[in-house]
Design a protein around this nucleic acid. Structure first.
Lengths: 333, 333
DNA sequence: AAGAAACGATAAAACGCTTGCAATATGTTA
DNA sequence: TAACATATTGCAAGCGTTTTATCGTTTCTT
């Protein structure tokens, strides 16, 4: 016995109306006499009819599904964004197809094409470095795309971020104001514009403002994992730095722990400011001072923006910058 | 100008073959003469044809998409599972529709129906408490379902877990062997079978084995967040307990931090064993001794099991139990 | 060299729904 | 009550694939 499905046709027959009328009822089209609507709804209920979204998608050319490309869901930074995205998506009756890319540009392209083949109504992209090929795919497709927590130097597509440059500047100034002259910049890959452009220039600006001199030796390039931080700690210390701005919480915790395990006192011997204000900053001791990014909101606003784009609504500004701040905790004086 | 799509028909016309032939080469059906295949592939490439997955889904009744119901992606425990799921899904050419339920049973039912409406080929469910209504929906649908990190007392559907009872017993025995007589059991909602049945009976068994007596006063019911742990610490201490088995890492860290902030030494004054072995256990000081669960693998294996189910393959055992262990760290002696 | 078998390709019927347009029913105005 | 406006419904053509039944060709067999 095969999976015997109830179709709109069955409902129409049972209710003595046409498929069109059933369709109207299902879609909340107001051009249906209340009594007819009631009759149809009863039959729908009785037969336990459930509209086939795939058929709907084919007929209407809308899938009420959006694709989400994310480097790694199991990373707290991205999963926070993802949660914001999904909540707003749900609010607007969309579902999310979530795919991990590991930040690998080849995978990103594949995944994007796969999502477009599935006829998603829109795409939210999170990634570090947007390659030319990817940008080409973006513009080739007529599907709306929004970047979340990722900057596109070209601003061709919509995006939601904070002012990374300004935030970094403020954080470094805080450190400088505390008397530090050698402040390390512990970054993710400098190839990512968000690090190599935005944050780095914020760092430089702060140094200049405070009359400190820039030194290559204080720049550390790394990936974002805890372990990297642990491994990096000694080198950072040997550079002569007495404070650091770190771009990832895991990384920052790694450095802080390694330093402390080596007998240093934080913040007395070394001060740290991190960048994501995730739960980690609250959990470790001392708690970490952090730039505050509204992660959940970045996701939520990005999705909201995407709904407008998908709806062809008028957009005031497709590049939105959310407010940031600095939450002072125990890792700075 | 409307989004002008290339269809299989365009390809067929350009290549002087029928739609059916194009379909065959796209689907790798061997019944096509190599020369014809080559010709078709050239046209596909030239026109940049991309098969419409929605139309395929309608015609073939397969969407190569699976639904994933998760309480909260931004929780490290679940996002680890999710990552395992997605990796294996990708391996088998499936995509994932990810939806957050907050563990709310009403939402779970809605979401499930929504996913089924979208004609997903299978569902992976993560949740705490499986209500009767949900179980009814499970059995009503002919779509394969697998539980990941969630136990169903009925074992009606497939599931992947560890032996929570055994793991908890071992953990409590460890504490008892260290001389503790009053060991707290800090649990999530006892309504969840995983807590109220599995873990709790593991706890009781351990007490019995060690000749300790069970006391209601040592059982704490809570949710899983860090803040709950902080708030709970004092009560746990007042209960007279000198050690605790905690079912969630966030919760455990909350308790550990609150205790230490109150001047207690861990493990000297209080010992803790937690349950998820997430990054948190490694990050905090002292590091937390934990039951080890292969989170990523639970997700991965669940998805692998689901592929077999979707493929109607012979299943040796649809309830799989993965190995666990205990990783001793600084929160126990 | 005729017939069987194997192969390659086609035509057309689904798949389950939306939607523009036509048809019918109902209501209103004078 | 005729004539016209408006509210409800039905018809049927897609939407872009897959897939089955069918047919025309080749290739063997003997």
């Amino acid at each position: 016995m095969e999976k015997q499905t109830i179709t709109i046709y069955d409902v129409a027959r049972e209710a003595n109306v046409s498929m069109a009328t059933v369709s109207r009822v299902v879609n909340g089209n107001p051009n249906v006499k209340p009594i007819t609507r009631k009759k149809v709804l009863e039959v729908i209920d009785r037969l336990d009819y459930r509209p086939n979204a795939v058929a709907r998608g084919l007929a209407s050319k809308k899938t009420t599904t959006v694709g989400v490309i994310i480097p790694d869901v199991s990373n707290i930074y991205f999963s926070s964004l993802a949660r914001g995205i999904d909540d707003v998506a749900t609010m607007y009756k969309y579902n999310i197809i979530l795919t991990n890319s590991d930040g690998d540009s080849e995978k990103e392209v594949n995944v994007l094409n796969n999502l477009l083949a599935k006829q998603v109504d829109g795409v939210i992209f999170m990634g570090h470095h947007i390659t030319d090929q990817l940008r080409a795919e973006f513009s080739r497709s007529r599907t709306p795309i929004v970047l979340a927590g990722s900057v596109d130097p070209d601003n061709q597509v919509g995006s939601v971020n904070i002012d990374y440059k300004g935030a970094t500047r403020e954080a470094v100034e805080l450190l400088a104001n505390n008397g530090h002259e050698k402040i390390a910049f512990v970054s993710g890959p400098l190839l990512d514009p968000i690090n190599g452009k935005e944050r780095l220039s914020g760092y430089k600006e702060a140094l200049k403002d405070k009359g400190l001199k820039y030194s290559e030796g204080l720049i550390f390039e790394s990936t974002f994992e805890y372990k990297q931080g642990v491994d990096l700690a000694e080198r950072v210390l040997n550079s002569g730095a007495t404070a650091a701005l770190v771009v990832s919480d895991e990384l920052a915790v790694g450095i802080a722990n390694a330093l402390q395990d080596n007998g240093l006192k934080i913040p007395d011997d070394f001060e740290i400011v991190t960048s994501n204000n995730s739960l980690l900053t609250e959990i470790v001791r001392p708690r970490l001072t952090s730039i505050t990014q509204p992660l959940y909101d970045i996701g939520a606003v990005a999705m909201r923006l995407l709904t407008k784009l998908m709806n062809k609504e008028e957009i005031e500004e497709k590049v939105v910058i959310l407010p940031h701040g600095i939450n002072k905790r125990g890792s700075t004086k």
